[in-house]
Computed example of a mutant assay.
Amino acid sequence: MPINRNALIRYKTIDNCLRNKYRSWTLDDLIDACSEALYEFEGIDKGVSRRTVQMDIQLMRSNKLGYNAPIVIKDKKYYAYSDAEYSITNIPLTDQDLGTLSEVVQILKQFKGFSHFEEIGGMVNRLEDKIYTSKTHSVSVIDFEKNDRLTGLHYLDTLYQAIIKKQVLNLTYQSFKAAEPQVYVFHPYLLKEYRNRWFILGVANRVKVHLTLALDRIKDISVNADFAYRENTLFNPSTFFENVIGVTKNAGQRPEYILFWIDKKNAPYVITKPIHNSQRIIKEDNMGIVFQICVVINFELERELLDFGDFIEVIRPRGLRKRIEKRLKTAGAYYEESKVLEIDDEIVEVYSPNPKDAGV
C-alpha cells in the first residue's frame, strides 16, 4: 500500500508518542500531536480529524503496512504499546520496500561516475548492502563505521526541515561545561557531520557570532513562530569548511600553512589518506617526508596531529608546534608520575569485552 507523506508523518508521530513511557496518551492527545507535526513539517494548519487518527491506528495495528503495531487501550482511555521495545522504525523492509530501493539504487548508480555526485558512492553501497542482506537473510558483507549509542540523531530531520523552511526554533542546549541548559531563539543554517557526530550551525538572538552546536547536547527543540527568520549573512555554507578540519571555525578566521614531518615507515599512510585536500609533499629523504596543508588552526587539527603519536613532528607555525610539544609532555608525565588510581579488578572483569568477541 503506497503511503503519502502526510500519512507517514502521522504514523511516525503516533509511534513517537506511544514510545514515550513517561506520559499517557488519549486519542485527543494523539490528534493534537499529529496536527502539530503536520503544521511543523508541512505548514498545514488544518487540524487532523478524529476519524483520520482512528484509521491511522487501525492501519498501524494491521499488516497492510507491515507494522502489526501492538497498540492497546489501557483503562478504556489511554493508548500505548503492549511491547515497550516496539517501534515502527524497527520493522523489517517489505518486498515492496526492497523493490523500490532496488530501483533507486539503479538510478543512483548511473551518476556514480560524475564528479558532482562523488559523495553518493558510499550511500549507494550502503543501500545495496541493505537490500542484499534483507533479500537473502544473510549477514552484511560491508561493515560501515557507526556508533549506535550516539544521541540527538532524532533531531536531524527536524533541523533539516527548519533550515529549508526557514523556521526559527526554541532550542534547549547544555554544553559539557554548562551546569544548566540554556534556551536559544535559534536560526538554523547548516547541518555538519564530523567523525560520526552531527552539528548544527546558526545564529541566536542576542548572540553576535554564529554558533556550532552538537546534536548530542540538545535537550529539546520546538518551532518559534514569534520571530522572523534571520537570513544567513555570516558565511557561505558551500565554502565555509573548505579550509577546516572538523567543525570549529570563527567567521573571518583565515587558514595558515602547516608543515609537519612524518617518518619514512608511516608516511605512506598519510600519502594514501591525506589529512586535508590541500596536502602537498614539500621535501622527501631517507628519514621521512615533510608535508604541507593549508587549514584553520583549531582543536580538531591539534587532535588530528596528536593522533599520529610518536612518528610526527610539527615544524611550523611555531605556536602550534609549541602547543603540540606541551601536550605530548603532559601526556608523558601521566605515565611517569602514575597519576591515575588503580582500577578495581572486579570492575575490569565486569566491563572487559569477551576475548572471543574482541578477536583475542
Rank of each mutant, 00 (worst) to 15 (best):
D143K: 12
Y257K: 13
R303F: 07
H154P: 00
Y334W: 15
E242H: 06
A33F: 12
N243R: 13
Q279H: 06
T239I: 06
A179Y: 15
T94P: 04
Y334V: 14
R61V: 12
R10T: 03
D285N: 14
K146E: 03
H116F: 09
E242R: 08
F308N: 02
E346V: 15
R206M: 07
I163F: 03
D220Y: 14
D56E: 04
I221H: 00
F176E: 15
E42D: 08
P2Q: 13
A225R: 12
I142G: 03
K265S: 11
D307L: 10
V360C: 09
C17R: 08
I343G: 02
I164R: 12
I271L: 12
L153G: 03
L191C: 06
Q253P: 00
H116G: 06
C17F: 14
Y78K: 04
E145N: 02
V348I: 14
I315N: 04
L234V: 11
S35R: 10
T239H: 02
Y257S: 13
E337M: 13
L171R: 01
K64R: 15
K322H: 09
P2W: 06
L93I: 04
H116C: 10
V290P: 00
L93R: 11
A162H: 08
N196A: 08
H210K: 09
I14T: 09
P237I: 00
Y189T: 06
F114D: 09
R316I: 02
Q96S: 13
E119K: 09
N205T: 15
P355M: 10
R50L: 14
D263I: 11
F111C: 02
T151D: 10
T89R: 06
V207C: 06
Y269S: 11
H137T: 00
P188N: 05
V72G: 03
I262M: 15
M60N: 10
F311M: 03
K208F: 07
P355C: 10
Y194P: 01
G152Y: 06
T172P: 12
R230P: 02
Q182A: 09
P268C: 02
F235Y: 02
V48I: 08
H137P: 00
F176H: 13
C17V: 12
Y22V: 01
D307W: 08
E119G: 02
T100C: 07
N205M: 14
V247D: 05
P92W: 04
C294A: 11
Y86P: 09
S49D: 03
K12C: 08
R327S: 11
E128Y: 04
V141R: 10
G288V: 04
C34M: 08
T94D: 00
Y11G: 08
M123W: 09
F144D: 01
P92A: 04
S222N: 03
H154D: 09
V183E: 15
N170W: 11
T100Q: 13
D310V: 07
R10E: 02
K64Q: 15
F299P: 02
Y269N: 12
A84E: 14
G359V: 14
F144N: 05
H210T: 12
E346G: 07
N68D: 14
G66I: 04
A7L: 08
Q58R: 15
G113I: 05
I164K: 13
M287E: 09
G113D: 14
V348K: 14
E128C: 03
Y39T: 11
L320V: 05
I73R: 09
N224E: 06
S62Q: 01
G122Y: 08
N4S: 11
A333G: 08
I131D: 05
K219N: 14
K130F: 10
L30K: 00
I262V: 15
